[in-house]
Design a binder for these strands. Structure first.
Length: 507
RNA sequence: GCAGACGUAGCUCAGUAGGUUAGAGCGUCGGAUUGUGGCUCCGAAGGUCGGUGGUUCGAAUCCACCCGUCUGUACCA
């Protein structure tokens, strides 16, 4: 027997997803709410493309001319490497640098877009996801950072996350730089170890203080028995860092934060200076009424190691997020950002200080689903005008009914499948959750009537009817009205259905 | 990347001392009912048993490698 021709297998690349109608509508609604906050703060949109030249993203391996792992890259026909953007910040820096003479600084701007990362996907972690950024370019002052923090807080609340269920944590990178110096890790020769220490600190929420101590010292073994080498610090150094980041032991108001730093590091000048800067930020937001329930200083915040130079901040959710199996998942931050004073300078040579943050839209959406704050926007499926006769005149009449409904603002469509099997038309309407079906056969046409069938009510009635003959002949929840009353009756019925849904939601 | 678990129909899963033609439920499609959704009944389609190679008279089953999924971990702008 001949081998069956092998069919092409339809498959989605791993780490990518197709988005459903519900997802798209829910995302649109989220984006709208976020955008409203950013606009209110005086930010304007700007959009950059998904591709950039790789060198503009800063992603080349030092000893080859091939792009780093982690980014999706292709070579253009002139051999130049291009990459899909992996965040929205580097492309913004490119845009600003390229148009620096036309752009009025400080430049306040926002944008939402897809970003791509070529790394191992996981549950809730994809290789394409959406970020929504806001940045202020050309503003050196701490007030610009303070504004970012407040805007993040406002955004969380605009999305329906109640106060107390989220928090914005702020730190100043220079505090950490000073700390490194204070524990003897200053200088070029310790760069690698500094990174290890920062990475360890960053894992506080994941492994707790004990886990971080292990990573700062010899190293840590994970559940599968795999061993992670630590930073190899001494006991005294580890203790100082542990005290620094153990936020449970300190008040995070502006004054006590500095006292905390001075207590551990004995008024080390760099640390005190950076701490005072952070204190100014906290003072600023508190004078605007943003207390420590919304924005707090937290010396354990690290963020990205690549380009942040000063303040760093991140938004964390304080409620438990469960997955579809009902297990509580480690959620981490849903957004973050900071000051990146060097990014524009790379292109222009000019000092152009900037600060901004990014919200992980896709991640936040999963969390909102959990919180029940994701209004699965109740988009009502269209009214279905069924087809009883297939001649051109009749089809014209059906189409006309559809248009009448549409012009009255009612979602409607005519059945486009094989009309000869009438049962299938109602089956289609049922599966699509159509609220109403319109039926006009030759009998009704001759009498100047139409049938309006309430599919929602009919579905309810079906539970009470056992045999099929009764079910068919009783024609449940169906009424005959004059053709001229089409729009009026349909509107009335839709109104009743909406009312029923509202009541059901309340109950 | 590293470590571990897993991979049988669209979905959830049976199926091993290697042995005819690999099964079930749900779903899909068709019919009973060509002008009425649901229920019920009848019938059908759907599988390279993740892939490749090996051991064997014979492999879904045993071995090796590869791919993929899940868990942990590393990296993460």
């Amino acid at each position: 027997m001949a081998k069956k021709p092998s069919k092409l297998k339809a498959r989605l690349p791993r780490g990518f997803v197709d988005r459903s109608a519900d997802d798209i509508r829910a995302t649109d609604e989220m984006l709208l709410k976020i955008r409203k906050v950013y606009e209110q703060y005086g930010f304007d949109p700007v959009e950059t493309p998904a591709f950039e030249y790789t060198d503009c993203l800063g992603k080349f391996l030092p000893d080859t001319d091939r792009p780093n792992a982690g980014v999706f890259s292709v070579q253009d026909d002139d051999e130049q490497w291009m990459s899909l953007r992996y965040d929205l910040t580097a492309p913004l820096a490119r845009h600003v640098s390229e148009n620096i003479n036309e752009i009025q600084l400080p430049y306040r701007t926002y944008r939402a877009g897809w970003v791509f990362r070529n790394e191992k996907p996981g549950p809730g972690r994809f290789r394409q996801f959406m970020q929504f950024d806001a940045d202020t370019v050309g503003a050196p002052g701490v007030q610009a950072d303070a504004e970012m923090c407040m805007m993040m807080a406002d955004t969380m609340e605009a999305l329906g996350i109640p106060r107390g269920q989220y928090v914005i944590r702020v730190n100043n990178r220079k505090v950490l730089d000073g700390v490194m110096e204070a524990i003897g890790l200053g200088g070029e020769e310790n760069a690698e170890r500094r990174l290890t220490v920062l990475r360890a600190i960053d894992k506080l929420d994941k492994f707790g203080i004990e886990g971080v101590k292990l990573l700062l010292g010899e190293g840590r073994k994970d559940e599968s028995g795999d061993f992670t080498k630590g930073a190899g610090l001494g006991a005294i150094q580890i203790d100082m860092i542990a005290k620094l980041i153990d936020t449970k032991s300190i008040e995070t108001g502006p004054k006590s934060f500095n006292e905390h730093l001075d207590y551990i590091f004995d008024e080390h000048p760099n640390i005190s200076y950076a701490g005072a800067d952070l204190g100014d930020l906290v003072n600023l937001v508190q004078s605007c009424g943003y207390g420590t329930d919304r924005i707090i200083a937290d010396p354990s915040v690290v963020r990205g190691l690549e380009y942040y130079t000063g303040m760093v901040y991140e938004a964390e959710l304080l409620f438990d997020v469960t997955n579809e199996k009902g297990e509580v998942v480690q959620f981490g931050s849903v957004g973050g950002g900071g000051r990146y004073d060097g990014l524009v300078k790379r292109f222009t040579g000019r000092d152009v200080p900037a600060t901004g943050f990014s919200i992980g839209v896709s991640r936040l959406m999963t969390a909102l689903k959990n919180l029940g704050k994701l209004n699965t926007v109740d988009v009502v499926a269209p009214v279905l005008v069924t087809v009883m006769d297939g001649d051109t005149d009749a089809l014209g009449r059906y189409q006309q009914m559809v248009q009448e409904l549409r012009h009255a603002g009612i979602r409607a469509e005519m059945y486009q499948g094989n009309w000869k099997k009438f049962g299938n038309q109602l089956k289609y309407a049922d599966r699509r959750n159509c609220p109403i079906a319109i039926i006009q056969g030759s009998d009704e046409f001759a009498a100047g009537d139409i049938q309006i069938k309430d599919l929602i009510e009919g579905k309810r009635l079906s539970e009470e009817i056992a045999d099929n003959v009764t079910w068919r002949e009783s024609r449940p929840a169906q009424m005959t009205v004059k053709r001229g009353e089409l729009v009026a009756k349909v509107s009335e019925l839709l109104g009743q259905q909406a009312e029923d849904r509202r009541k059901a939601a309340e109950a």
